[in-house]
Design a protein around this nucleic acid. Structure first.
Length: 804
RNA sequence: GCCGAUGUGGUGGAAUUGGUAGACACGCUGUCUUGAGGGGGCAGUGGCGAAUGCCGUGCCGGUUCGAUUCCGGCCAUCGGCACCA
């Protein structure tokens, strides 16, 4: 063993061993407990950044720990390789998106390897490869057949200069980020996936995972799905006996307070209106601020039409209002100005009647949105809101003019992108007008490689030949769909593909039912809603396609915090980035791994500290030097202290229990690292005092190496090889003999204040302790001449004397 | 506005079921080693105080023998949603 710690040399050596031995390749084995550990796969931007390092270190540490427990651990990696940056790079550097992506992957793969992550590299997948997206196309066709995908007109951000659709984040101050042209709203026909059919399931099945997921993520998902319970009721109109208006309300108890009906600007009733009103509603539809803004003025117009109140039979004016949303509920509401702030503002502006029907102790001219006793509500007076809602729904149902209904905020998932670098949607438009999925044996529909980015617009659409084809069945001329899929499509099922990544006959093989669900999923909080919701949705789709058996893809979720420098996010524009490669060159991968684990709890943000990295490096040097000393076997104490000997053993044994809990149950990795530092400090102290046997020091050191092994695997392997330790990859066993101490540290309090700490025989009973405590001056001082009311004894820890 | 989370030394953080607040580390101070620098060793390091000691986990109050931990109110920071009837 060398006297100097040389990370560069040993890490290369150890990594060569792992790759040469295929140490981390796994196959299903029903006799062994499995553990599927996954980090969110990266977009191959070209270089690893510290956020990646942190994310992948956490999952690697957990994968290695669970392997040490004897589990069959799947820990794969791949590339979320489709997406816009590749197209931008293609335009800027005149490279093909494919070449750019592949060279980035090559570079990042090397960086991942240099960090010693224990991936099963035989399972590496890349979403831009035909083997992967072929199955996506296949699945799209299955969904098409089940009518779970459909096409509809939808608004997009349109850059009129580049003739391209922009993502929201590409619109800066209303202008296209590249062209600077004023962005327009444009309606184009796009593909949608019916996630709304699974709204209730996505909500209900959160119950299976909510105890294992961070609360905030579960809450965000619930809010996003946005279920609200209420009723749909129907108002007859004076237009025609057969025309009625349905409204959705969560407050059926306020039905007697309805004074008008308000419609969204695209409601079908508007067809019955005169041209000036139609013009008004078109104005609302085309207005720039379709979303709420602070200064958006409430606006509306009376249609000249009336509805009939279903119970009182009163005539109610029908208005068009810009605050009524299209696409939520029925696109029409009942206006109850006394008990809804928006309705109140509207009624005030247009002088509409306000009828108070809930008594909440509010003054006249005050909106009250809470619950209370009903007033002015005929048979329902004096009933409380909640009960009244139920009774009124029941009453309406009996009369066949309403029913209990739940609504969801969740909208269908728009999956079309007017882009080149994505998975082509396998649809053809035949000359006879039919929209057809392509035949299975035509899959995959490959992206053409010879594309021209110099023209504006979608390169697939511009390609001279690609989109022209013939229907395989009829021979009729056809054009291909030139939209590609949203890249969230790829990342929604990769966790299942990792289970059988090389299966050429199936999208997902039988192995998935061994490995799934993912036991530990680690990634950024920024994916709390979209990616995690889509992946959960996809899992259910795959289950209903009989490809999977479980309901949920990810059992346990950890959202790791951001890596910050000087309190803010690292970014190229700020020039405050830290290059992991340089750090690894300087200190080695183990130091970087140790630092990101030690510096903060996994879910917290991590403030970068060059000093902190130095500290981690120093620790590994100390670890190495201690190993070197033990290797030389120079320790020959002349006198052995049985007390210190036992103390060290007990400390180490307790540390095994603590760190096991930290790794396994708490996922508190920073405290594993600090406990390891304590063990080493203790060992060094014992070496210095030269009164502990070599065997005890050696055993303690071996235990330390094992506990630390998941975090800094290179140095641990190298040292253990040098010291001929052959079971470094097994979690250390506890020696029951060394868990209880002979003495205990008793804390003596008087009235809750610590007055004395004393090391006493651990076997003393309460009576003996109550006697002993009064022998100390520090205690007597506060108890003499005082009336002792009671003495509270917490076994093995603390005694509190209560005096008056 | 609504929902959620967090608040502990100069800094990152620890204290897992109510039981020694500040583990571990960074930084800092002193000191030894060295020609010097780096590196390393040892000692110290929440605040106030000469000191027995007092104060101290965002602020105010409560429960308790005892509260960083539980309860109520407030403040601040961060995050999510934001016309969803």
């Amino acid at each position: 063993m060398q006297s100097i710690y040389n990370p560069k040399e040993i890490e290369k050596k150890v990594q060569d061993y792992w790759f040469g031995n295929k140490s981390y390749e796994v196959v299903p084995n029903k006799n062994i407990e499995k553990f599927y550990c996954l980090s969110m796969f990266p977009y191959p931007s070209g270089n690893l950044h510290m956020g990646h390092v942190r994310n992948y270190t956490i999952s690697d540490v957990l994968a290695r720990y669970h392997r040490m427990l004897g589990k069959n651990v799947l820990h794969p990696i791949g590339w979320d390789a489709f997406g816009l940056p590749a197209e931008n790079a293609a335009i800027d550097n005149n490279l093909s998106p494919n070449d750019w992506t592949i060279s980035n992957i090559k570079n990042m793969r090397e960086q991942l390897k240099s960090l010693g992550f224990s991936y099963d590299w035989s399972r590496e997948i890349s979403t831009c490869s035909e083997d992967y997206y072929k199955w996506e196309q296949w699945f799209f066709i299955q969904l098409f057949k089940k009518k779970l995908v459909y096409k509809k007109e939808s608004l997009v951000n349109w850059d009129p200069v580049d003739k391209t659709v922009l993502a929201n984040e590409q619109v800066i101050d209303g202008k296209g980020w590249r062209s600077g042209a004023l962005v327009e709203k444009k309606k184009i026909s796009q593909w949608f996936l019916k996630i709304t059919e699974y709204s209730e399931e996505l909500l209900q099945e959160l119950k299976e995972i909510e105890e294992f997921w961070p609360d905030n993520v579960v809450t965000m998902q619930k809010n996003w799905i946005g279920k609200s319970n209420g009723a749909e009721l129907y108002f007859d109109t004076t237009i025609d006996q057969n025309i009625s208006i349905g409204v959705f309300t969560t407050r059926p108890d306020t039905i007697f307070g309805v004074t008008y009906i308000a419609l969204a600007a695209d409601h079908s009733i508007i067809e019955n209106c005169n041209s000036s009103i139609k013009k008004f509603s078109e104005g609302i539809l085309n207005s720039k601020d379709t979303r709420k803004t602070e200064n958006k003025e409430i606006n509306g117009i009376f249609t000249g039409l009336f509805a009939i109140h279903p119970i009182t039979k009163k005539k109610l004016p029908i208005w068009i209002a810009n605050y009524v949303l299209t696409g939520y509920g029925t696109g029409a509401i009942m206006g109850v100005p006394a008990h809804d702030t928006r309705d109140y503002d509207f009624a005030k502006k247009f002088n509409l009647e306000i009828i108070k029907v809930i008594d909440g102790g509010q003054k006249d001219n005050e909106v009250y949105t809470g619950n209370g006793k009903l007033i002015n509500s005929k048979d329902f007076n004096n009933i409380n809101s909640e009960l009244a809602s139920k009774s009124i729904i029941k009453y309406l149902e009996e009369l066949n003019i309403g029913k209990a209904v739940s609504n969801y905020k969740l909208r269908d998932w728009g999956i079309s992108r007017q882009r080149y670098w994505g998975c082509p949607i396998p649809i053809i438009y035949r000359e006879d007008g039919e929209v057809m999925p392509v035949e299975q044996d035509e899959l995959p529909i490959k992206l053409p490689q010879d594309v021209d980015f110099s023209k504006s617009g979608n390169p697939l659409d511009n390609h001279p030949t690609w989109k022209y084809t013939k229907c395989a069945k009829t021979g009729l001329n056809a054009v291909r769909e030139t939209d590609t899929l949203d890249t969230f499509f790829e990342s929604s099922w990769y966790q299942a593909r990792f289970c059988s990544p090389n299966d050429t006959d199936n999208m997902i093989g039988e192995d998935a039912n061994y490995w799934l669900p993912v036991d530990m999923y680690i990634g950024g909080i920024e994916h709390a809603v979209l990616h995690l919701l889509y992946a959960r949705f996809f899992h259910k789709l795959l289950r209903d396609q009989k490809l999977l058996k479980t309901n949920e893809p990810f059992k346990k979720l950890i959202t790791q915090g951001m890596v910050l420098k000087d309190g803010s996010k690292m970014s190229k524009s700020k020039g405050n980035t830290i290059d992991p490669k340089k750090l690894i060159d300087k200190y080695g991968a183990d130091t970087v791994r140790l630092f990101v684990i030690f510096a903060a709890p996994v879910e917290n943000s991590l403030e970068w500290s060059d000093h902190g990295v130095e500290g981690s490096y120093k620790f590994l040097n100390k670890l190495w030097n201690t190993g070197f000393v033990l290797n030389e076997n120079k320790i020959t104490p002349n006198e052995i202290s049985t007390i210190d000997e036992k103390k060290l053993k007990i400390f180490v044994n307790k540390a095994i229990i603590k760190t096991n809990d930290d790794y396994c149950n708490r996922v508190s990795l920073n405290t594993v690292a600090s406990t390891c530092m304590e063990i080493l400090n203790n060992i060094q102290k014992c070496i210095l005092s030269n009164n502990v046997s070599y065997a005890t020091l050696f055993d303690s050191y071996v235990t330390l190496l094992k506990i630390l092994n998941p975090i800094t695997p290179h140095i641990c392997k190298e040292i253990s090889d040098s010291l001929n330790i052959n079971d470094i990859n097994n979690w250390p066993k506890i020696d029951e003999k060394y868990l209880t101490e002979d003495t205990m540290l008793l804390v003596i309090q008087v009235n809750g204040k610590v007055r004395k700490k004393v090391e006493i025989d651990a076997n003393l009973n309460q009576n003996a302790i109550e006697e002993i405590i009064f022998t100390y001056d520090e205690v007597r001082k506060y108890t003499i001449d005082k009336n002792i009311k009671k003495i509270i004894y917490i076994k093995g820890k603390l005694v509190n004397i209560v005096v008056s």
